[in-house]
Amino acid sequence: MSKVTFSVNGASRELELDTRTTLLDALREHLHLTGTKKGCDHGQCGACTVIVEGRRINSCLTLAVMHQGDSITTIEGLGTPANLHPMQAAFVKHDGFQCGYCTPGQICSAVAVLGEIKAGIPSHVSADLTAQPELTAAELRERMSGNICRCGAYSNIVDAITEVAGGKA
């Protein structure tokens, strides 16, 4: 067992955990924040995506004890049913989901993707490495490739993200 303290959605949480506990299991099983989903549990599907220290990561592929002092945002911290985050509202408006299982990961990823584009981080499809990346569907699809949607809501997800980014869907 090992002690770890981190901040989740603005509140400090102290846990005593088996060292094997992933951040995903700490959030779901110990803090009962079940918005973050377990899909493949191997970093391939993106359902477990959360934002740690401002960056999106797969919470299934990191140990909770490795996050001493970190600030973690889950889907519960982005918005509430009464006060949706703009990305949540856009997913609803554009039908960016069907079954909804991958959606919390998609939304956390999408929020972070817009931050990455704003920060000038290039992607595989950026034509010019040294230019500010453009907000195109091709860019969004490439950047969101770590989030899989079995229902195939991809085109609506792109529309939702595009609207939040201020572009034309």
Binding site: G46, N58, E116, P122, L129, M144
Partner: peptide, 23 residues
């Protein structure tokens, strides 16, 4: 790296996913 070692940027960006590259 983007200016002088573009091959390295390109190779990195061709690998894994955004979430994995962040870690």
């Amino acid at each position: 790296v983007r200016r002088d070692y573009g091959l390295l940027s390109r190779a990195l960006l061709a690998g894994a996913s955004g979430q994995l590259r962040n870690k």
